[in-house]
Amino acid sequence: MPVRRGHVAPQNTFLDTIIRKFEGQSRKFIIANARVENCAVIYCNDGFCELCGYSRAEVMQRPCTCDFLHGPRTQRRAAAQIAQALLGAEERKVEIAFYRKDGSCFLCLVDVVPVKNEDGAVIMFILNFEVVMEKDMVGSPAHDTNHRGPPTSWLAPGRAKTFRLKLPALLALTARESSVRSGGAGGAGAPGAVVVDVDLTPAAPSSESLALDEVTAMDNHVAGLGPAEERRALVGPGSPPRSAPGQLPSPRAHSLNPDASGSSCSLARTRSRESCASVRRASSADDIEAMRAGVLPPPPRHASTGAMHPLRSGLLNSTSDSDLVRYRTISKIPQITLNFVDLKGDPFLASPTSDREIIAPKIKERTHNVTEKVTQVLSLGADVLPEYKLQAPRIHRWTILHYSPFKAVWDWLILLLVIYTAVFTPYSAAFLLKETEEGPPATECGYACQPLAVVDLIVDIMFIVDILINFRTTYVNANEEVVSHPGRIAVHYFKGWFLIDMVAAIPFDLLI
């Protein structure tokens, strides 16, 4: 008679799926529990143990900040960024110097990925580790590398530091407007667009060049630039800015003055950032001319202004700041037409079709709590990747769950009947059967004279019903998954307890 339990259901295979997918890609990662103190490590794979030199037993239950890997060259700011990422709910990448158990130093890129439950609360953290440099290539500990984003994938490793954006290309926007319009339909740009040429040739750093990471940081200074100062900065030398009595002219307006920039070969870094931020506020060169004239017309309804409409929906549905990093990277690809469009465009503009998908598509409701890094690593669709929660398995109709209350009560009843059979069957065979043979035949009273025979008949009927119930009862397979398919249940029961239950259900007393 089957006594099969499996009270692990309803099970959740999400954690096993993450481990299996990460292991298949030869990654070095740990999984931490966000619900406990210090976000203790609950799993670390073999790749991480080989990377740091510690065994799994030495890593388990330690804080996922990996303070046991810190050393003299470990930056405090990087460690603080990892700790801050564990307090938030967004994906974050941090470069930090770690030390192995043998004392060797290596520069590592740590990717902190939160995993949320159905309520939107962070319950786990996945920390992925990628070695960037070994100890002989690690720089000085005073050099802070965590304020910069990861290198873009479309640049060669040897040319990542030679990417320079020439400031004269930004200063000569109005001069290039006529050349853009003359391109017409034969050019790649839309009317009114501004073409910015980027020099990728390796050259020595000069005062006129600005690194790509500095251009990325310009967006942080746009908020500090007032509207009046932006307007004066875009007017140009024809209309000098008016300053109040006793007030000095704005240095932001002076930063885009061609006369002032041409007199000296070098520009201050602050002026460069502010000038680029001011130019980015204009949607095209037409807006710059309109600002000089004193009238700013409404933005025209053409394809170039609607190019950012799908980007707005993608940004609203993005799951991490990696989408913004990807957008900034692609927006700086050289030799393309940049349409400086305000994100607050007309909502009635139709979304044009684009061959290049900048932001990841909208994630469906079932995966809105899973970050983009987890979705990318697992390579699963929205119909396959579940949320991290207890999910009731989908069972067929008329199927009994093996952990249901009805099955528990039924098993206790069958257990009592088995005990009765084990006690009274030998007793009936030894004593009652002998008395029946010696006594007179009682054929007239039937079952009324033999109450134990009636009980034995009921017990046999219950055993037959138990066999039928076992054909529709779920079970737990070797992978700790609840199986509810009727065919698989029948095959599993035939290979197991079916023969024993059938022999126990045969009414031998009635056959004798």
Rank of each mutant, 00 (worst) to 15 (best):
R5A: 09
G6D: 07
F14W: 14
D16I: 11
R27S: 11
A32M: 01
C44K: 01
N45H: 01
D46Y: 05
S55Q: 08
A57N: 13
V59M: 06
P63D: 06
P72N: 03
A78K: 05
L86D: 01
L87R: 14
E91V: 08
K93F: 11
F98N: 01
Y99W: 01
R100A: 06
S104I: 06
S104K: 08
L107C: 06
C108Q: 01
V110H: 01
V113K: 09
P114G: 02
L127N: 01
E130D: 08
V132L: 06
K135N: 10
M137N: 15
G139E: 13
D144R: 06
T145V: 15
G149P: 09
P151D: 14
P157S: 06
A160E: 15
F163M: 15
K166R: 12
L167W: 15
L173R: 13
G187Q: 15
G192T: 08
V198A: 05
D199T: 01
S207H: 15
E208A: 10
S209Q: 05
A211I: 05
L212P: 12
L212I: 14
V215G: 12
T216L: 09
T216F: 06
A217P: 15
H221K: 15
G224E: 15
A228F: 09
E230K: 05
G236F: 15
S239V: 07
S250N: 09
H254R: 05
L256I: 09
N257R: 06
C265I: 12
A268R: 14
A268C: 05
R273V: 12
A282C: 08
S283Q: 11
S283C: 07
E289S: 04
E289T: 08
A293R: 10
A307I: 12
M308W: 05
L315P: 12
L316W: 14
L316P: 08
S318C: 12
S320R: 08
V325Y: 08
R326P: 11
Y327W: 09
S331T: 14
P334T: 01
I336V: 14
L338K: 09
N339T: 03
N339M: 01
G345F: 04
G345S: 07
P347A: 11
L349D: 07
I358N: 14
I359Q: 05
I359P: 14
R366E: 03
R366Q: 06
N369H: 03
K373H: 01
Q376F: 02
